[in-house]
Computed example of a mutant assay.
Amino acid sequence: MVESRQSFVHHALGGGAVADVLLWRRWYGSVTVLVGSTFLWFLFERAGYNLLSFVANVLLLLVLILFFWAKSASLLNRPLPPLPDMEVSEEFIANAGEVMRVWVNHVLTIAHDIAIGGNIRLFVQVAFGLWVISYVGSFFNFLTLVYLGVIFSLAIPPLYEKYQDQIDDKLILAHNIILSQYKKIDDAILKKIPMHLNKEKKIQ
């Protein structure tokens, strides 16, 4: 039972190396992501370092190391730097484009249903979601939100995998409460809309 539950969470996260890192099955990868994101957040948020300067300095340091490594290797008959092929495969571009296409089409479908189809319920959901994002974003800047996202991504999946039954019970209860409140708000909004729009919505 525990094994099937763990495999379900692992599969839900994609079932690959990313899932292993998020579930701390590759603890060195998880620690690297945690330490690296914390270092970058502190560097840019607290130390006030500039992103462009940081990227330029890192690239400059990398170029210097590779240049002197290659020069010393040719003088001392040592092996050259073990660099992979510097190219992006067509398969990678095709896969990334396909994922992007699915997301863009999904967003366009939602926009079409709101603007052309007049889907009031979907409009309320999207407006409420955007308002929540705007409200939360007013307390943090973008970098801090990204950092919090990384922390939650490394904390929530393993906790959910360990306490899935208890969390599912609480989530079902919270979902029922939110759904009942949402229906009340939704009905109150629909009542304020002219009757002929409500009739058209019901006919659709």
Rank of each mutant, 00 (worst) to 15 (best):
A115S: 09
K170G: 05
R121I: 05
L40S: 03
E3D: 15
F54M: 03
F92N: 08
P194Y: 02
E200K: 14
V55K: 04
I167L: 06
T109Q: 13
W131V: 12
I178K: 09
L43M: 06
V146R: 00
V55L: 14
Q164G: 00
L83R: 02
L179V: 06
A111H: 09
Q204I: 07
K201N: 12
V55E: 03
E91Q: 10
K202S: 07
A127V: 11
W69V: 00
Q125E: 13
L66V: 06
V124K: 04
N176Q: 13
Q181G: 13
L75Q: 13
N50P: 02
G117I: 00
I178D: 07
R5H: 07
V58E: 11
F54Q: 00
Q166D: 09
I193M: 07
K199V: 12
S7C: 08
F54W: 07
G137D: 03
L76K: 08
S138E: 08
A127H: 04
L173W: 11
L52R: 07
L52A: 12
L80A: 14
F68L: 11
Q125F: 10
A47M: 11
V132A: 04
L108P: 02
A12I: 08
F142Q: 06
F54H: 03
S74C: 06
E3W: 14
R78M: 11
F139R: 10
N77F: 11
A127K: 06
D168H: 05
V2Q: 11
L64Q: 03
G14H: 04
V124Q: 06
K192P: 01
V104Q: 15
L59I: 11
L145M: 13
F68V: 13
R46F: 14
P194F: 03
I172K: 13
K184R: 12
P79S: 11
V132T: 02
R25G: 05
F123Y: 12
W103H: 13
I114F: 04
E200M: 14
L75F: 10
F123R: 04
A12G: 06
R5G: 00
I203Y: 08
F140W: 11
H175T: 13
F8K: 08
I116L: 15
F123Q: 04
K170F: 05
I114P: 02
S89P: 03
K192D: 10
S4K: 14
R25E: 09
D168V: 09
A56E: 09
I177E: 12
